[in-house]
Design a protein around this nucleic acid. Sequence first.
RNA 1: GGGGCGGUAGCUCAAUUGGUUAGAGUACCGGACUGUCGAUCCGGUGGUUGCGGGUUCGAGUCCCGUCCGCCUCGCCA
Length: 623
Amino acid sequence: MIRRTHTCGECRETHAGQTVSLNGWVNRYRDHGNLIFIDLRDRFGMTQLVFDREQKGGSQALLDAADKLRNEDVIAVTGVVRLRASDPNPKLATGKVEVVVTELEVLGKTQNPPFLPDDTAKLPNEELRLKFRYMDLRRPRMQQILALRHKVYQTTRRYFDENGFLEIETPILYKSTPEGAREFIVPSRNVPGHWYALPQSPQLFKQILMVAGCDRYMQICRCFRDEDPRADRQAEFTQVDLEMSFVRREHVMDMMEGYVRRLWKDVAGVDVPPIQKMTYREAMERFGIDRPDTRYGLEIRDISDVAAKMELGFFKEALAKGADRPKFNSKRGVVKAIRVPGGGGAEKLTRKLTDGYNEFVRSFGAGGCAVVKLNAQGMFETGIAKFVEPVKTELTAALGLQPGDTVLFVADAYAVCTKALGELRQKVARDIGVVPKPGAEGGPWNFLIVIDFPMFERDKETNRWVAMHHPFTAPRDDQAEAFVKADVDDEVTIESIVSAGYDIVLNGQEIAGGSIRIHDPAVQGKVFQLLGMTPEQAKEKFSFLLEALSYGAPPHGGIAFGLDRLVMNFAGTENIRDVMAFPKTQIGADLMTGAPGFVTPDQLAEVHLKSTWTPPPASPGGG
RNA sequence: GGGGCGGUAGCUCAAUUGGUUAGAGUACCGGACUGUCGAUCCGGUGGUUGCGGGUUCGAGUCCCGUCCGCCUCGCCA
């Protein structure tokens, strides 16, 4: 085999006159009969080859061989680098030179490919790209993303190594802990009737590594959650997972901020300014969501005081809900509004759109969305105009209204109202086109650290308390005492307890989340109790953790970054599959390998299983 | 589990209110051509319109079911 002396992205004017060998794929051939051009591609670039009978080293045999080459054949060539003085190709980095081939070796002939790995052509449908993943990955764009991802790995390892972290692997076959996300389970062969689960995250192992004295741990690890995917979510994904001993939350936040800075500097060449912190309360109040997109305004205002003076039935009804509860209690009724400024998008809010908003907020459990417009003459129009008119002065002051503005109202219990408007805010922003381009395309990188999350929230279905982050999250230092003393039935107090958790948000997307952990077995026991676990159940599920914590556990905390989402940001894609070499579809299928597939009855028997699934009645054909 | 969009040649797409033999570009095959770089020119192969059923004189088109892909709600401690 002719082995390459250079890559296809390497040759420049300085190589002129040199004899080189190249390996690669035929990206394109231009056959002029007695003169043939080939663009040869590898992951480093593209170089034009020339086959010319009348050049030194050329021959009819060489031409005949080149004549048979087709797109995506794998070849090796030797030839002389020549300047393209009169007709350089400005589209190629190597466009000022070409290689005049004297020797050709076909290393791998292709059958007619289902599609060509061409970034300039329209992409074939994703089903096909996933089935022939190796063909899709040949595209320079995909190679670039794979390289970006590699760079993220390397920068990550370097940064944490420099900061004293040990990279330690944790088990993939793990114990089932059926809280949280649905788990993938794996039957045990040696212990009949028993099961492993694949980890949703290495959470407990990394805590135990802290108890083990490892001081600082990091891992780029695979996590598994058997839940339906989304554009930015897969059942199998990668986290940059870390944990630190002898820290308060400020120390972890500093470390993760340093990581973000280093990553953006090394991978994107961007200097990230100091990251602002915002409390969960403020995020919910201003943006209606715990991961605010701060790239645009359209902030939410609580106008309950003004609304109380309006003779509007559904405002009054909403405000009457939980009126005895504290101000930010989830069940207390409120009226909130978004002002869409005139000249800043309000004119794009057609009747059709605002009618749709009514339906939209209903999907989040709110009763509806009221609308009013302030016309150029400063008169309220449409929707609830006649109810607003009497409180015009107060509402104008509360929202800073200007002629031309449109106001969107939602009235409901605090949690519902906030959620509905938070989602509506993002939809309105998209509808009126005020969302900037992604950072990777030159838009802003708006980072935010959100802190002071509630420890617990009510599960909508069971009405039981669930941990907002996870059950190992500590209360904020100054909340610990109140938490331990709190009666488990004291709903208002429990809801008000704030944790030592923190999230990093980038342009409205959660890219990392973590917390200081509980290292006191008594506090941990209290959490389990609150979550409705008896001491026996807690022991059954987490005795190893409680035991570990009782043998001298250092204060510790950590965080996990969603690595796939980091790469998505650098690559400027909204599709998580684009940043994974071998992603799965909506039903968790790998279209290339055909997973999931059948196993033999013997394989099942070996792990003490019998499938209850029966094939549906045979239907000829299929899709 | 719910909602939405899509599936026509290897690929990207077209096909009037349901109406003749389902077309085009590209890829592929054959031929011509010594400076192309989306090469060009000439000719050709290629289709169970995802699958199954129904309505109709007639279905790519309408209806029902189903499979697959994508988006989304639920879900994602």
